[in-house]
């Protein structure tokens, strides 16, 4: 078993809508960038772990191999919500640790443009007549009729319950998380927006899912996302020759 697994190369694309690039384009850029960073080629890689959530049935890994190198290695497609990219990385590391290969490549990619509100999975179409469907025996979509399934709404409630249970988690606390995250974005040229906002600006912004906000993003536990924000990012990494290696990837934070 490999004692240590090293990350030999890494690459990430810029967060953005990328209307002219598809999931495979973004994944290919990230994968090839990571290989180049590591000084490796696909023929050096013994396992590919590919993470994509929104088109989880599309075999993104195989599509990617077709574009960057079909070398006959095993590919694992994984989907695990916000942890999709991290799961891909884990799969690559596990293959190395198990002794199957010395070098792995992990890629995570997501294209959320047009994904809407990211509601849960129980929405259903309304027919001509009421007929019970699904595990709730629902005759109509329940999102919006029985609470909310949208991710910003769900996380807003989690944040509020947290405050109720433990105290001290008021709206200003969440606004400060958002302030901090925006500050971090100014340090990352690949971030979607690199703009700093003051606490006051954030506190005064219109809230779409009270107590969350519209523009801020990535302020878990209460998420602050734009309703139709979109981004795509991927990061991949390739590991090494003599020592074992794995590559990270990162699924796009769902917010």
């Amino acid at each position: 078993m490999a004692e240590n697994v090293w990350i030999l190369g890494i690459h990430m694309t810029k967060f953005g809508k990328h209307p002219d690039l598809d999931t495979v384009d973004l994944g290919a850029q990230a994968a090839r960038g990571a290989l180049s960073d590591a000084g490796l080629h696909m023929r050096d890689v013994g396992v590919l772990a590919a993470g994509n959530l929104m088109r989880a049935a599309a075999s993104f890994g195989q599509q990617l191999q077709k574009q960057i190198g079909q070398t006959g290695i095993p590919v694992f497609n994984v989907a695990n919500a916000c942890a999709t990219g991290a799961t891909a990385l884990r799969v690559a590391i596990m293959a190395i640790r198990a002794g199957e290969t010395d070098v792995g490549l992990a890629v995570g990619v997501e294209k959320l443009s047009g994904a809407g509100l990211l509601a849960g999975g129980t929405a259903q179409q309304q027919g001509d007549t009421w007929s019970p469907q699904g595990r709730f025996g629902a005759v109509a979509p329940i999102d919006g009729r029985i609470g909310t399934e949208t991710m910003p709404g769900v996380f807003a409630q989690i944040g509020m319950e947290y405050g109720h249970r433990y105290g001290g988690a008021d709206f200003e606390l969440f606004a400060r998380i958002s302030e901090k995250n925006h500050a971090h974005s100014t340090l990352n040229p690949l971030a979607s927006y690199q703009k700093r906002f003051s606490l006051e600006q954030i506190m005064n912004e219109v809230r779409s899912w009270s107590p969350t906000r519209t523009r801020g993003r990535c302020a878990r536990p209460t998420v602050t996302v734009a309703p139709r924000r979109s981004w795509s990012a991927s990061r991949s990494c390739a590991p090494s020759r003599s020592s074992s290696s794995a590559g990270p990837s990162r699924s796009a934070p769902r917010c």
């Binding site: 509100l117 509601a119 929405a123 979509p141 999102d143 919006g144 009729r145 609470g147 909310t148 949208t150 910003p152 709404g153 807003a156 409630q157 989690i158 509020m160 319950e161 109720h164 219109v206 809230r207 779409s208 899912w209 009270s210 107590p211 969350t212 309703p227």
Partner: peptide, 19 residues
């Protein structure tokens, strides 16, 4: 125990509403 005031929702759902 917890709530959120929703301003954007699926078509056909009147907003704002309290979830």
């Amino acid at each position: 125990r917890a709530f959120t005031i929703v301003s954007y929702a699926a078509p056909g759902i009147p907003v704002p509403f309290v979830a």
